[in-house]
């Protein structure tokens, strides 16, 4: 049996979701994570205790990931996962 190497990814939380980051990471809105290979976006959301309903805009490397793909999309090394609650502007 072989052990898969972990993957390093960045979790970026903005607006009111920043409160879910550890205090030292809040100013940069960024937390570097080492995850087991195969960890999905939904896994990270669950592990960090983020309310799924508040995870509205989910981007991996700047590209939107639809809700239906979040439980199956595994993060790979170097991915930047950025999440916002429902937002608007202009």
């Amino acid at each position: 049996m072989t052990t898969q190497a972990g993957v390093r990814v960045a979790l970026k939380l903005y607006a009111s979701l920043a409160d879910y980051l550890p205090a030292p990471a809040r100013r940069a809105h960024r937390l570097d994570l080492e995850l087991p290979a195969g960890t999905t976006i939904a896994d990270v959301i669950g592990q960090q205790g983020l309310p799924p309903a508040m995870c509205h805009l989910v981007l991996v490397n700047g590209v939107f990931v639809p809700p239906g793909e979040r439980a199956v999309r595994a993060l790979v090394a170097g991915d930047e996962l950025a999440i916002w609650p429902p937002i608007g502007g202009g």
Partner: peptide, 16 residues
């Protein structure tokens, strides 16, 4: 969202 962060919440989104 808009009351707390205003339209400025877009800065990081659009940059990302």
């Amino acid at each position: 969202g808009l009351p707390k962060f205003g339209t400025q919440v877009l800065m990081n989104v659009i940059n990302e």
